[in-house]
């Protein structure tokens, strides 16, 4: 079985972003970029399935600017076999990302696609579900455990009230949650090796996909700020303030 893993290049999770004063967006100049953390978890899971003999090839794909090649090289250094970069300078919305991924799935015929549950920049939490819909495949979102059986998989999902376990028929789209695994770091020799692994370049037009935006961003602004309050000296003072000043007890 082949596993397809989409990986997105996003602002590193440690960066505190700044909103541009003119309201036109978020200032990303000279900001550290990394692989979306959920996608690292997806790559790790795919590699573990390969190491367990459940898969024979892991293909990673990214849709984005030429620099997204760095993200793909990171995935290759972790152990993925081959990469596809769909180059575009556009801000591609989840629906168009899903359409491009469907085009890749049609060509590659993976048995499983492992997608991050959300990208930490746009926080949409849509792409995997949309991709499953477009392919007519089953979806298992927010996975914290995946067991591959014969033509099927059992997936435990993190839901609001706790956990839900479902059986799904393959091929399928699974989206990853935080507790699925702890991703490995790429070793230096593997980073060197990754430079020679195959990387195919495509464009959205190769899949006949129009990436024009359906949503129009009118404005991007800072959230309402919150000021630091006071320090209390004791538990007794805290209780007093909560009762008599804040009125919440």
């Amino acid at each position: 079985m082949k596993i397809l893993v989409p990986v997105k290049r996003v602002v590193d999770y440690n960066v505190k972003i700044r909103v541009k004063p003119d309201g036109s967006g978020v200032d990303l100049t000279n900001v550290k970029m990394s692989m979306n953390p959920f996608d690292e978890i997806s790559v790790e899971e795919a590699l573990r399935l390969k190491e367990a003999g459940k898969a024979d090839e892991v293909v990673v794909v990214s849709i984005g600017p030429p620099k997204a090649e760095e993200t793909l090289r990171t995935a290759l250094a972790m152990g993925a076999d081959r990469a596809i970069l769909v180059e575009t300078e556009d801000q591609v919305e989840p629906l168009a990302v899903a359409k491009i991924l469907r085009g890749i799935a049609d060509a590659e015929k993976p048995g499983l696609i492992i997608v991050g549950k959300q990208a930490i920049d746009d926080d949409s939490n849509q792409t995997g579900q949309m991709l499953a819909a477009l392919l007519g495949w089953v979806q298992a979102t927010f996975a914290s455990k995946i067991e591959i059986g014969d033509g099927k998989a059992t997936v435990t999902r993190e839901v609001d009230g706790g956990l839900q376990t479902i059986d799904i028929k393959m091929p399928a789209v699974v989206t990853t949650d935080l507790r699925l695994n702890e991703p490995r770091y790429a070793s230096l020799p593997n980073i060197m090796k990754a430079k020679k692994k195959p990387l195919d370049k495509k464009s959205p037009a190769d899949f006949g996909i129009d990436t024009a935006a359906r949503l129009k961003v009118l404005k991007t602004e800072e959230p309402r700020g919150r000021e630091a309050g006071i320090k209390v000296k004791s538990v007794a003072e805290l209780i007093d303030k909560l009762k008599n000043e804040a009125g919440v007890l």
Partner: peptide, 19 residues
Amino acid sequence: TFKRPIYAGNAIQTVQVAG
């Protein structure tokens, strides 16, 4: 037209739907 948070709530986007 709607407001939604991005970047873990560190920016708020105003988005308009076409269609």
